[in-house]
Design a protein around this nucleic acid. Structure first.
Lengths: 174, 174
DNA sequence: GTCGAAATAATCATACGTGACTATACACGT
DNA sequence: ACGTGTATAGTCACGTATGATTATTTCGAC
């Protein structure tokens, strides 16, 4: 998890030098669908990256506004970025996709309630699918699009599985 | 994340009162495919649950062995369990399935390497799929089986997506 | 001109998760 | 009887992530 967050921050700095607020704004506004990293976390990651020599800090003053720390990726940081990127793409640690533990104990609920809750979940998945398909394409085959398509594919799969499972539970109850 | 872990521990205590070591052993040996929670984490969760009045502790001494803390779920704990269970089944917070951030930046690699890394990932997914299909069935339609089937479905979907994407990248490169 | 809301830019206290470590008891070979 | 590996049962120090908070500036409404 940590590595993915560092990768995200380094990736944004690969595009251009930025200050903390800018990074957070970008994540909030454009990547809300992709990362749930919080402001304070981004700042602490920037600090860590700086201590590791992966980014450099310079201070900027604009008008009367408070000082800002501008972060710039270093050559060492670019190497680190590629390292993390390769690891991220090539690995599949994939333990427990969130929400899976609950299924283990579903027998503690009666069939009717289980079905109702699964339907609720399916609706939420569907709603989320809707949000994602509204995200505009960035261009042909950019990584960002790939990433979005990946999420859509997984969510669609989740939705299908829920539909099948609900059917099964309904049948069994009879 | 925290909630899912609490749910897991409470769920195990719903089946029977247990001491910490027993819980950890069970998770390690039987749920390695389902949860990556570590020993120390389980102990700290038990402590928290105890402080919240969701489990009670009693001390047991068996022969000359060191004392053991036996944890028993309380009525309040059972309510909490159901609460967490319902929430877990009905929600779909699903932000960033691990490994997705990497795709965003895949353009920083050349096509050939990207394909190679995706193939590596696919192999790992496939290997993991193999492991999961070896897990013995617990019985007909128990939650545990449902949970495993869910993971298999998602992994299969991931594998298919990777295969499609690799094809696409190959085509594009030409 | 002034008052409150929103934007800007961050820090801090706190809780959570985990690798490393501690410590005892038993089994087994030699 | 002695070492030594493994099972038992847990604690602790440390790093990470985040909600809450701080502090200043700009802007629009009145």
């Amino acid at each position: 998890m940590t590595d993915e967050r560092e990768l995200l921050v380094l990736g944004l700095l690969m595009a251009q030098s930025q200050h903390g607020y800018q990074i957070n704004e970008f994540i909030e506004k454009n990547l809300g669908q992709v990362s749930d990293m919080k402001k304070a976390t981004a700042y602490s990651i920037l600090k860590r990256l700086n201590q590791g020599g992966f980014v450099e800090v310079s201070v900027e003053q604009e008008g009367n506004r408070p000082q800002r720390q501008i972060y710039t990726i270093t050559p060492s940081g670019e190497r680190r970025f590629l390292e993390l990127l390769r690891a991220s793409i090539a690995t599949a640690d994939n333990v427990t996709p969130a929400g899976n533990i609950g299924f283990m104990f579903i027998d503690h609920l009666n069939g009717q309630e289980a079905v109702k809750l699964l339907e609720e979940k399916m609706q939420k998945v569907d709603h989320f699918l809707g949000m994602l398909s509204l995200v505009p394409q960035h261009g042909h085959g950019t990584g960002v699009d790939l990433s979005i398509k990946h999420r859509i594919a997984l969510l669609q799969c989740e939705k299908d599985w829920l539909a099948r499972t609900i059917q099964e539970l309904r049948t069994r109850k009879t």
